[in-house]
């Protein structure tokens, strides 16, 4: 199929993560196409940091990202729902107790 040939001639897709300033995490900014990692970083600079939005860039080829399946999000995340004792507000302490 011609479509197949076409999509394989595309430059690979990369996911871009940007640290907006020192001390903060890298955060997903978006994606872009580039032939290799060096080009992906350059393109990410031009595409996602034209207004000093970043001090550091990570790129990873999209095919290496493994994601959880939204259909299984119940099984994955619901077990945390009934464990409210993991939160400090669960514990009822007298007002006299300070600095806790």
């Amino acid at each position: 199929m011609t479509d197949e040939k076409k999509s394989t001639s595309e430059w690979p897709l990369w996911e871009v993560f940007i640290r907006s300033k020192a001390g903060l995490d890298h955060k997903h900014a978006g994606s872009l196409h580039a032939a290799d990692a060096a080009m992906a970083i350059e393109n990410a600079r031009d595409t996602y940091t034209r207004r000093m939005e970043g001090v550091s860039i990570w790129v990873v080829e999209s095919k290496y990202i493994h994601a959880s399946n939204p259909d299984e999000s119940g099984a994955l995340f619901e077990p945390a729902n009934d464990k409210i004792y993991r939160h400090p507000t669960f514990y009822d302490l007298p007002d006299e107790v300070k600095h806790m």
Binding site: S7, S9, L13, D46, R50
Partner: peptide
Amino acid sequence: LAKVQDEAGHGLYLYSAAETLGITRDE
């Protein structure tokens, strides 16, 4: 120049948003 470059950026953000729905850039 900066404005026109921004528009290029906008096109790129949007193409990659559309790609998440299963269409390729080339298509």
